[in-house]
Design a protein around this nucleic acid. Structure first.
Lengths: 338, 338
DNA sequence: TTTGGCACTCGCACTATCCGAGTGCCAAGC
DNA sequence: GCTTGGCACTCGGATAGTGCGAGTGCCAAA
């Protein structure tokens, strides 16, 4: 049975009230605060029906209704209107991000900004290595048999690792290695690095082979696979707002797991570029009571990585979504320019 | 009036009981659980006196006593005996830290380890730049007028910044700049960098001057001053153990402030290398209900940086202190070897 | 100085009670 | 057939009263 317009209005009103008051909302309150044009009794009937359909729930008999995850989902998909940021907010975002001096700075500023705007926990992922390309690869001799490998990507990420060789490497060899490695990798996507390195190994001069083997192993294993993703967190204090369902411990624990966060942020396969996961929709048990709003960011068609916020299911979705999207757009543009 | 031995015993017993039960401890309980050789009545007299002296407090009449900050202070300074880690724990520390592959890894593993061992919030500071020395300075051309400056320290820290010049810089100039900069800085303490750079500026060939000026400004301002210190946090979920005094929000907020953490960790001026700050002894209001155990770490006489944990004032000081010290020693040794 | 005895205090847990917001249902009205 | 006012009912939360017991302070005797 399809819901008619008024019932949807009622659901919307209930969600808006509940989000702002954090208390179950009853029919009387509702008819007072919204111009629905019908009496409380009518609203009650609608509410009963919405409850039957699973959009609302009652904490206990004789209490008002609260939205269910399904209710929020409907709201987000069909009822909420985008709430554009105020001019002041837009300007604040711009100003705050403009003065970042390097990638670290950009990422840290972004995450703090997002936490502040949404008053929730914010996560920002560094531009993904797999989706970046190599700008330059530098070899710095640390001692006779040790090299520091520094990888610089087009998004400004700089990753480094120490490589130890069984024997000393002389200076001209280092220069040669630097040359061929950059020749093979510079400008290439990191995702193609394995193929490129493999080819390089086959075509390289024999005396370079052993070194190249070691180097490419390190490059592939550690830079690409292990350290691949990096992210930062901010606003955990916002979890401590008392009205959180249950203990915040499991949530804090989940947030300390790099992998969990990556999964959370990484799964933006939505063509619209942003995604909302509400309550039960989250895979992880400890996050079943929270909602996550994520977006990818990038320049043009290239996706650099993801960012998002996490909060109680009864968050202000319109504002949160527009904040997340606005920040994602800004930071994407910013990084594209550098 | 000096406290006699038995009164100190009583104080010690109270603290130990309170730390393990988290409940006010009364005279009867105390005489049952400890062999103090005197009756509850005697203990009561001692307790009354300890309260007069400010070492104990009563949450309310007819409740047991709990230690005050002053009581903990006395306990830490004079009553607690070092509780050495178990062999298993030592081995676990070693194994866990051994397999770190680079500085980032060491620091992250350390902070997680510390949080796990103490079940509290752990903070580890990266080896301080000001106390490190330059191993190598690399200049990587990004485009004709932009250079990436990469600074590598003896402790393995790698910091990078992009420098933009008003005009193109040709390759030989880059090589020259690299040469003179490394000549001046390599092996020098970063603390001496300002002087060295100043000298370099005066003696350098005139055509290099403008570039060197820009470069040294960037080096000094951003690498040394702004990004100077870096730290990581773990175990915030341990704050969510219900029995925390008041809300954990202000604590989480404080922990998000880089500066606060640096102050917390940086002030290890104690000759013994570790420091305990109990409750009110903390400068910051929001941390008045917590205790902080910090230690510096380093190799030999060189202090790299600090690390520590933060928890409720009623923490297990002996265990915490020995964990912090053990981890500090391990990580210092580990970094010295690399 | 220590100890047992004793009266006293007070927080906490438990129960009983009341209040009111909110519901569901029903019969009358548009 | 939907809407509405009326009405009885429900139940959680707040308030108040009560009893219990751990713990204290004081005192007089050992």
């Amino acid at each position: 049975m399809p819901l008619d317009d008024r019932k949807l209005e009622v659901l919307k009103a209930i969600i808006e009230d509940y989000v702002s008051t954090h208390e179950p909302v009853g029919s009387k309150m509702l008819s007072q605060r919204h111009q629905l044009g019908v009496s409380p009794a009518t609203i009650r009937n609608d509410m009963a029906l919405l409850e039957d359909e699973g959009y609302l729930a009652q904490p206990h008999t004789s209490a008002g209704r609260i939205p269910t995850d399904k209710g929020y989902r409907l709201f987000v998909d069909r009822l909420s209107t985008v709430k554009p940021l105020s001019g002041a907010e837009r300007r604040a975002i711009g100003q705050f991000l403009e003065c970042a001096v390097d990638l670290d700075d950009v990422v840290h500023r972004t995450v703090r900004l997002l936490a502040q705007l949404t008053r929730q926990v914010a996560v920002v992922q560094y531009p993904s290595l797999t989706r970046s390309s190599v700008r330059h690869l530098e070899l710095v001799p640390l001692s006779s048999a040790r090299l520091l490998v520094v990888l610089i990507t087009d998004t400004g990420r700089v990753e480094q690792r120490v490589v130890e060789f069984p024997a000393a490497v002389d200076e001209s060899m280092v220069t040669d290695l630097r040359g061929v490695l950059n020749g093979a990798l510079a400008g290439q996507a990191l995702a193609d690095a394995p193929t490129e390195l493999h080819e390089l190994l086959e075509t390289a001069a024999p005396e370079m082979r052993p070194y190249l083997t070691t180097l490419s192993t390190v490059l592939l294993e550690t830079l690409v696979e292990r350290h691949e993703e990096k992210l930062v967190l901010a606003g955990t204090a916002n979890l401590a707002t008392v009205d959180f369902p249950g203990s915040i411990r499991p949530i804090l624990e989940a947030l300390e797991e790099q992998m969990v966060l990556l999964k959370l942020i990484g799964e933006v396969e939505n063509p619209t570029g942003f995604q909302v996961r509400i309550g039960q929709e989250n895979q992880l048990d400890s996050l079943r009571g929270t909602s996550v709003v994520t977006s990818s960011y990038g320049a043009g068609d290239t996706v650099y990585a993801g960012l998002g916020v996490l909060g109680p299911t009864r968050m202000d979705y319109p504002s949160t979504i527009s904040a997340v999207r606005a920040v994602a757009r800004y930071v994407g543009d910013l990084l594209a320019r550098s």
